[in-house]
Design a protein around this nucleic acid. Sequence first.
DNA 1: TACCAGGAGAAAA
DNA 2: TTTTCTCATGGT
Length: 219
Amino acid sequence: MAVVLPPRRLRAVYRRLHARYGPQHWWPARTPFEVIVGAVLTQNTAWSNVERAIANLEAAGALTPEALLALPLPELAALLRPSGYFNVKAGRLRAVCHWYVAAGGHGRLRRWSGGRLRTALLGLYGVGPETADDILLYAFDRPVFVIDAYTRRLFARLGLIVGDEPYAALGAAFEQALGADAPLFNEYHALIVRLAKEACRPRPRCAGCCLRRLCPSAV
DNA sequence: TACCAGGAGAAAA
DNA sequence: TTTTCTCATGGT
């Protein structure tokens, strides 16, 4: 199923979001490895809960792949508890860390092609297309457009997509329309998330806000 | 109390 | 091949 998106409208949406919210400086992490950890932990989970789990990892000195792998699985799961699905995510994080360390860490991985990186990530337990693209874009600066629930909701609301298109078709459509531009994709996705979070906050005047047409909560 | 949140994998149909 | 179920905490 091929999806075609109008480049001018996509850029117009971006300009409006950027004008309203400004640069977001994403991903909210200090190291590429922390991006990877956050990408796994945020699966179907509010970011506020992910922050608690990352704080636990940091307090335990486990925010490096080697330190994380040294933790017994039950102990790791206990640290991840606030992020939900903690038993599942503990196993997923360990799988990613095993690969990360075996591959030689960020220094070596950053020299891999985007295609090779994506194939490797998708082969890992617990890494699906969205998590892989989060990692590719925000940990490795590769030009992939992340398709998450917010993105589907927003562009379906704008009438540009239906919303249930296959992940790969939507990703390809955004990348085709906007061109391979990692800094743009970085900022665009961050702005979509910012909009969604803003829209989800109770605001008495939300119904009249200038971005009502972009507001997922107004759907 | 009930529902939802930045998915993914396994099992069932 | 597609759909459904499971994993789980914290905020509203």
